[in-house]
């Protein structure tokens, strides 16, 4: 409900916005996809991944390399990016899913560092810390070039809407209920006859795939890919978006993404102490709305 309202409102006001706020809204749309993908793990399955930037970044690098070195177009970049991210998640999931709680956090962190290390050190492929610049936006053979801010915003918005619809369907499906069951009680799920490992693994892979989708858009949006995109800070920020907005609700992480993108870009204009303010907001949310902003709105204190 809120999501549809927000999407329609965003689409309606976009043409009246100057280009800078528009690019920020575009960023919100992309980050919302990333945050929602993580929410499938964190909010629905109860798996706090600290390595989500790995799949996001893998896809971004795939696009960066293919688009600059092979002049790959829209479909190749999209498919390759999402597939590679999914494959990375499928591989890492084999290692990570055995762990639970803090150990899961640590192992996903470590795996994320592996990808960061590759991005940083595999210089012949990734250009190391210099990053890959000049990644062109795709040509969709539309009357509008995606190089301009407004068409690209609509492009990102449609992508976010599609991702939201897909993840929403997943969340409401029998499979989505299974994931929530795992979040609530693994032992009971096993006793009922669920292969808990398999369902967690599937959630992990699907989540990685959607993170990859966001990564593809990110590479096009920035026109640039660097190890920063796969580093820990990016994973942590994504986790915070989910926690801030409300895990277990897809609109929550999207809202969290909006809050963080705007906080980062507006508060920092007025004060150099913006990190402090961001920190205060996080602490405030943890203390007063542990289920996120949306969680607090939905269920007033009894």
């Amino acid at each position: 409900m809120i999501g549809v309202g927000a999407l329609v409102a965003a689409a309606a006001v976009a043409p009246t916005l100057p280009s800078y706020p528009l690019t920020l809204l575009t960023q919100v749309a992309i980050m919302a996809i990333l945050a929602m993908s993580l929410d499938i793990l964190l909010g629905y399955t109860g798996l706090p991944s600290l390595g989500h930037a790995a799949y996001f970044g893998t896809a971004a690098y795939a696009v960066g390399i293919l688009a600059t070195e092979r002049q790959a177009g829209f479909l190749t970049c999209l498919v390759a990016g999402v597939l590679l991210a999914t494959a990375a998640a499928a591989l890492f999931g084999l290692v990570a899913i055995r762990a639970t709680g803090t150990y899961f956090l640590m192992i996903t962190l470590a795996l994320g560092m592996v990808v960061w290390g590759l991005a940083f050190r595999w210089v012949s492929l990734t250009k190391g810390d210099n990053g890959i610049a000049g990644v062109p936006r795709p040509d969709l053979a539309l009357p509008w070039s995606l190089a301009a801010p407004l068409p690209f915003f609509y492009f990102a918005l449609v992508a976010a809407a599609l991702a939201w619809a897909a993840l929403g369907t997943l969340a409401r499906s029998p499979f989505g209920l299974t994931l929530q069951g795992i979040r609530e009680s693994e032992t009971r799920m096993r006793a009922l006859g669920y292969d808990v490992w398999l369902h967690k693994y599937l959630a992990f892979v699907i989540s990685g795939g959607f993170a990859g989708f966001a990564g593809v858009l990110w590479a096009w949006y920035n026109g640039f890919v660097s190890p920063v995109d796969v580093q820990l800070v990016t994973s942590v920020e994504t986790l915070l978006m989910v926690a801030l907005g409300g895990p277990g609700t897809l609109a929550g992480p999207a809202l969290g993404a909006a809050v963080i993108v705007f906080l980062k870009n507006f508060v920092s204009v007025y004060t150099k102490r913006w990190l402090l303010i961001l920190g205060a907001v996080y602490i405030g949310v943890i203390l007063f709305a542990p289920r996120g902003v949306l969680g607090a709105l939905r269920a007033p204190r009894r």
Partner: peptide, 24 residues
């Protein structure tokens, strides 16, 4: 939903991702 989880546990329906639970 608790009961649904218990019922679908031993059916193939638990893997369905594309259709809403509510319509089953």
């Amino acid at each position: 939903d608790n009961c649904r989880l218990a019922v679908q546990a031993l059916t193939a329906a638990k893997f369905a991702m594309h259709r809403p639970l509510a319509r089953d």
